[in-house]
């Protein structure tokens, strides 16, 4: 199976704090890879590196063969970003515009001018994600769960090849959290993208994962299918899965 994203020997630091210390990883096309690990381990940093929002000190990030890490100009990065969609942790919706305009934003940003086509696509994706009744609300009028759905609609509207999910159900109750997982599964079947999910919610996130990768101390500690993860005898994996305080994972 071909890899949509290939990460090689990736290093990223902030000042003297090393966040990623030589990560190498392949994310297969058409599958969902979940990156798990304790808070502050650099999961969201990895996502922002893939999206070209941050730049690594060393290493390569090949997205469909093009090296995002080596691109100097925003123009070059933008050509790859147009193939990406991101659901941010807090949805990152634009406060001053309606849900409709938020969802339509990526289309307009890409220069689409045909209002009828924009309308058709927005209503189609809104309908698929049960957002039709909220289209003319402002983001601050909605609950976090609905805002995340709007964020997902915005990430999917341009039918990207890769969708990055940054902690998709952080801050949600279990019922709404399950709904977000159902939406990820539904949209994966409907649009067929390659997914990268950042999460620390185990084992719930396994239901949307084809592969699970665990980060710890800036390195990959374990990887495999959800089943392999469940059977892992690695002390850190077991500690993380069981949510115990004692073990190799130290609270920072």
């Amino acid at each position: 199976m071909t890899a949509a994203i290939k990460i090689r020997d990736l290093h990223k630091s902030f000042g003297s704090q090393v966040v990623l210390d030589g990560i190498s990883l392949e994310i297969p096309t058409g599958k969902i890879t979940t990156i798990v690990g304790p808070s502050g381990v650099g999961k969201s940093v990895l996502l922002k590196l893939i999206a070209g929002i941050l730049t690594p000190e060393i290493g390569d990030i090949l997205i469909f063969g093009e090296n995002m890490a080596k691109m100097q100009s925003e123009k070059e990065k933008n050509s790859i970003r147009q193939r990406l969609g991101i659901l941010f942790q807090g949805a990152a919706l634009f406060d001053s515009i309606s849900v409709y305009d938020n969802i339509a934003f990526p289309l307009k940003a890409r220069g689409m001018k045909d209002r009828f086509e924009i309308h058709d696509r927005v209503t189609s994706v809104a309908d698929s994600l049960s957002l039709t009744r909220y289209l003319f609300n402002l983001p601050q009028e909605l609950s976090l769960g609905i805002r995340k759905r709007v964020g997902l609609a915005r990430a999917l509207i341009s039918e990207p090849d890769i969708v990055l999910f940054d902690e998709p159900n952080t801050g949600l109750d279990p019922v709404v959290g399950q709904e977000v997982y159902d939406l990820i599964k539904f949209s994966k079947d409907r649009w067929g993208f390659t997914g990268v999910v950042i999460s620390h919610e185990l084992p719930e996130v396994f239901q949307v994962s084809d592969t699970v990768v665990m980060l710890l101390s800036g390195k990959i500690r374990a990887s495999g299918s959800p089943e392999e993860f469940m059977r892992s005898e690695d002390a850190a994996v077991i500690q993380f899965m069981e949510g115990r305080k004692d073990g190799p994972i130290q609270i920072q």
């Binding site: 922002k48 999206a51 070209g52 929002i53 925003e74 990065k77 933008n78 970003r81 147009q82 990406l84 991101i86 941010f88 942790q89 807090g90 990152a92 919706l93 634009f94 406060d95 934003f105 990526p106 940003a109 890409r110």
Partner: peptide
């Protein structure tokens, strides 16, 4: 500032908008 800390500026960049 709020757009920055709520990742709205990152969202713009991720949508290829300067």
């Amino acid at each position: 500032g709020i757009m920055k800390i709520t990742e709205q500026i990152d969202a713009l960049r991720s949508m290829a908008i300067d």
